Every structure is written in structure tokens, then in C-alpha cells.
Amino acid sequence: NTKMVRFKKGDSVGLRLAGGNDVGIFVAGIQEGTSAEQEGLQEGDQILKVNTQDFRGLVREDAVLYLLEIPKGEMVTILAQSRADVYRDILACGR
């Protein structure tokens, strides 16, 4: 149940992230009207890879910085997997 989305970065990627470290990086929110939303990313999706950067094992701050450093107008390719069950557990633990 993995999906790959590809879009051109606007002012931002339009994602709020949660998790990090051993639990993985998850989409915690999506800005309305962004390409990330239009391409089908959803809250609870685990981000496995962005462009050439493996997101598994990253701390959340490093994942956020990586997304911020992608220049506006560059193509962004995100490999994600729907993991809403794991995401709910992360929220319940306050991570």
C-alpha cells in the first residue's frame, strides 16, 4: 500500500510532520490547496523517502529542515505508505 506522489514545490511543501526516530515520519496535517493535497497525501501517511533522502530513522527536525531546503519550483517526489493505525498510536503516546 505504498504510493508515490510527485509535484513542483510551491512556497512550501504543505505538510505538517509528526513522529521521528524509531517510529518514522508521518503526515500530521496537509495545507489545503497544496500540490501535496491534490496528489493524494493524507494525514497518517508515513513518509518513507523524499527525492533521494530516506526518511526512515530521521528525527522530525531533520525531516522538516530537508523539506524546507528544497528550493521553490523544484520537483518533489515522495514515497509514502498509509499507516493510519500506527499514526493513531503515535498520537496517543504524544509523540
Rank of each mutant, 00 (worst) to 15 (best):
V5S: 01
R88S: 11
R83W: 02
F26T: 09
D45A: 01
A36L: 12
Q46W: 02
G19I: 05
N21L: 14
G94L: 02
L48M: 10
N51S: 05
Q46K: 07
K8V: 13
L65Y: 09
N51L: 00
G94Q: 14
A92H: 13
G73A: 03
A80G: 05
K9Q: 04
M4W: 07
I30E: 03
S35Q: 13
L15E: 08
E37V: 08
F26D: 00
G94A: 11
Q42V: 09
I90H: 13
R60G: 04
K72N: 08
D22R: 10
F55H: 00
Q31M: 12
G14A: 02
E39F: 11
S12M: 08
A18E: 14
G73Y: 06
N1W: 03
R60F: 14
D89L: 05
Y66S: 05
M4N: 03
Q31E: 15
V76N: 01
C93G: 15
T52A: 12
D62F: 04
G29Y: 07
E74P: 01
Q38L: 15
G44S: 01
Q53F: 06
F26R: 05
V13N: 02
L48Y: 11
K9T: 00
R95D: 15
A28F: 01
K49L: 03
L68D: 15
Q81K: 12
R60S: 09
E37R: 08
L48N: 00
Q42C: 12
Q42E: 14
V86P: 08
T34I: 09
V76G: 00
V86L: 10
Q81D: 08
R6P: 00
F26H: 00
D89I: 00
A63H: 00
I25S: 03
D22K: 11
K49S: 12
S12P: 04
A80W: 01
V23K: 09
M4Q: 11
G19Y: 03
I25W: 05
Q53N: 03
D85H: 13
G33V: 02
D11Q: 09
A63I: 06
I47A: 01
A92Y: 13
K72M: 07
G94C: 06
E37S: 12
G14Q: 06
V23Y: 08
L67Q: 05
G33K: 07
I47R: 04
Y66V: 06
G10F: 03
L58G: 05
R16M: 10
I90K: 14
Q38H: 14
A92S: 13
V27T: 06
L48F: 03
Q53E: 08
K3T: 02
